[in-house]
Amino acid sequence: MKITIKEVAEVAGVSPSTVSRVISNSNRISEDTKVRVRNIMEELGYHPNAIARSLVSKSTKTIGVVMPQSTEIAILNPFFPQALSGVSAAAHKQDYCIVLSTGSTEDEQLKSIKDIVMSGRVDGVILMYSSTENKILDFLREIKMPILLIGKPLDNKGVLFVDNDNVAAAYKVTQGFINRGHTKIAYISGKFEFVVSLDRLDGYRNALWDNKLEFNRDYIVSVDYLKDEGYAAMNQLLQLKDRPTAVIVTDDAIAFGVIEALKDADVKIPEEIEIISFNNVPLSKFTNPKLSSVDVNAYQLGYKSGELLINNINNIEGVEKSFIVQTKIIYRESSKR
Rank of each mutant, 00 (worst) to 15 (best):
N27Q: 13
S335K: 11
V22P: 06
F215G: 02
A253D: 09
S104F: 10
I259N: 11
P153W: 02
A9I: 03
S292Y: 02
R53M: 11
V117M: 04
A186P: 00
R141S: 08
L309D: 03
L226E: 15
M1L: 12
G45A: 01
K191F: 02
D155K: 09
N279F: 07
M234P: 10
A170R: 05
E108R: 09
V11S: 10
S104Q: 05
Q326T: 14
S88C: 01
R53A: 15
I310L: 05
R53T: 14
E193K: 12
R243P: 14
S17R: 00
S293M: 04
T60Y: 08
V14C: 07
Q236M: 06
F286T: 15
K58T: 02
A246I: 01
T102I: 12
Q94N: 09
L84D: 06
I136N: 09
I150D: 09
D107M: 15
V319R: 08
P289A: 10
R180D: 03
Y187A: 06
G86C: 06
I248V: 08
Y219V: 07
F79E: 07
T60E: 10
S334A: 11
Q109S: 13
L84T: 03
R243F: 14
L262N: 01
V167W: 03
I316D: 06
E10V: 12
L55W: 04
R28G: 10
P68E: 12
P68S: 08
L154E: 15
L44Y: 14
S130H: 08
G306Y: 01
I178V: 13
E274M: 00
D224R: 15
S26A: 10
F80K: 05
F192R: 07
G64V: 04
P270L: 03
V19G: 07
V221I: 15
L110G: 03
I188D: 10
D242C: 05
A74K: 03
I143S: 13
L140Q: 04
N297T: 00
N49S: 14
I273D: 03
